[in-house]
Design a protein around this nucleic acid. Structure first.
Length: 442
RNA sequence: CGGAGUGUAGCGCAGUCUGGUAGCGCACUACGUUCGGGACGUAGGGGUCGCAGGUUCAAAUCCUGCCACUCCGACCA
């Protein structure tokens, strides 16, 4: 993408409402724009990151055996009356009426709807286990949205729902998501710690929040520091290996880790002093087992091998991709801007034409751009007629992993400079060497 | 929802107390000089001062009502 033909509205000054670094940088780097309290437009660069995050989530959900579908944002109030939550949910739910005065709502979550879909088709235990997920916009009318997309009213959520014949099966389904989540966050360069969590209004008795430690986190958490050194399960994990998966989950829940609501001061005292971590955290994922909470009132039953009907045991599993992006920035930035982990970076590299209009630099940039693009790299080419300083500042702000500096000084020796955004030194290389390096052939 | 604030050009702000018809920096446009870490000069463009009433010869400024947004708290993916 040529920057001169792109839409990248970067801000030089920080909008006054942005209090935390991720919000400031998201606004300044032109990722998002606020349209109303807690409601954001995703600008082109932000959307690219969002799509990359979604792609990773999708891959790991699919790997674990979950199946993607897409449910609507607007739901019928009647569906929620079946579970009893239409009255229970309160003012956080945005309630609307259509032209026929039918009561509708903008979904804050999808347990009812997915249960309705399930009961419409599934009759036998032989079709279980089943895990259905989607990545869809949610709306929760927060009393006080804040911190940009970290706590917004409209937000994207990956929500998965598992269906099993019995509790043992549901436990395995829970473990699959547990491991999938460990892998998902690790792939984004984040160290997420699963913590025992309160089940809240959704209910149930087995729940973990996945927390990223960050000083700007909204909740206070307590955990054993060794979690930060634990090895994340590999891509070859066998999700059908019940005992193996349970072993992984047991290990990842063997040490103390709890959010403040579930904090047990006495148990925390037993943690060796040098391993005690009391910190703030950002919740990026939350998983629940809640048994028959929805299947019972909504009549989601299957025939079991015993010839009897059984209410299915369910769990739900959420990740907030929009919030996750803020968490990634909180975890990875410096005074000049964002430093994207490669896996979610909006572009693979940015080419800085340090003297746009100069025949030599123009030609070298065009060649680099063509070669890298042909090799499948997604490259941003800063071809603007701007001073070099402005280009460096822009490149640092938007945090693309590699910067390729093309100027007359280097070209005199047939070289350009390659610089990693994450604190790397500039390295002088011939054009071909840069292409080889960035396409994994060097 | 309790408490505290803020709305003036795309962004950041001054002007409001003490009423006289709107200004600064950045950004933007044109031309010129510049160009390896956010250049400089000259000339420009852009605002029904959040909205609606009221007071007054005259309102960004005073009064009333409303709306929006932000921060602290309680709540929450």
């Amino acid at each position: 993408m040529r920057l001169s033909r792109y839409f990248l509205p970067i801000l030089r000054e920080t909008p006054k409402e942005a209090e935390i670094v991720s919000h400031r940088l998201m606004l300044r780097a032109g990722l998002i724009r606020q349209e109303a309290a807690g409601i954001y437009a995703w600008l082109p660069l932000g959307l690219k990151v969002l799509n990359k995050v979604n792609a990773i989530i999708r891959e790991e959900q699919n790997r674990s055996g979950a199946v993607e579908l897409l449910m609507p944002t607007i739901q019928s109030a009647d569906l929620w009356r079946e579970s009893g939550r239409y009255d229970a949910y309160g003012k956080e739910m945005l309630r609307i009426k259509d032209r026929h005065e039918r009561e509708m709502l903008f979904g804050p979550t999808n347990e009812e709807m997915v249960t309705e879909i399930f009961r419409g088709y599934v009759r036998s235990y032989k079709d279980l286990p089943l895990n259905l997920y989607h990545i869809q916009w949610k709306f929760r009318d927060e009393v006080r949205p804040r911190f940009g997309v970290m706590r917004s009213r409209e937000f994207l959520m990956k929500d998965a729902y598992s269906f099993d014949l019995d509790q043992a099966g549901a436990r395995h389904s829970y473990n699959k998501m547990f491991v999938a989540y460990l892998r998902t966050f690790a792939r984004m360069g984040l160290k997420a710690i699963p913590m025992r969590a309160d089940t809240g209004p959704i209910g149930g008795d087995l729940s973990h929040e996945f927390i990223i430690l960050a000083s700007t986190g909204e909740s206070e958490v307590f955990c054993h520091g060794d979690y930060l050194t634990f090895e994340v399960p590999g891509a070859d994990t066998d999700f059908d290996d019940v005992a193996g998966l349970q072993g992984t989950v047991d290990r990842w829940t063997s040490l103390y880790a709890a959010t403040s609501e579930m904090h047990d001061a006495a148990a925390f005292e037993a943690v060796p002093a040098q391993s005690k971590m009391s910190a703030r955290g950002i919740e990026v994922g939350h998983i629940f087992y809640f048994g028959t909470k929805y299947s019972a009132p909504m009549g989601a039953k299957v025939m079991g091998p015993d010839g009897q009907e059984h209410e299915v045991h369910m769990g739900s599993y959420g990740i907030g991709p929009s919030r996750l992006i803020a968490a990634i920035i909180e975890a990875s930035h410096d005074e000049n801007g964002i430093i994207w982990p490669q896996a979610v970076a909006p572009f693979d590299a940015v080419i800085l034409n340090l003297k746009a209009g100069d025949a030599g630099t123009d030609a070298a940039c065009a060649r680099l751009y063509a070669d890298l693009t042909a090799a499948g790299r997604d490259v941003l080419y800063d071809d603007r007629d701007e001073r070099p300083g402005a280009k460096f500042a822009t490149a640092d702000l938007i945090g693309v992993p590699f910067q390729i500096l093309v100027g007359p000084k280097g070209l005199a020796e047939g070289k350009v400079e390659l610089k990693a955004r994450a604190g790397g030194e500039k390295e002088s290389l011939p054009l071909d060497a840069v292409v080889a390096r960035l396409t994994g052939r060097g």
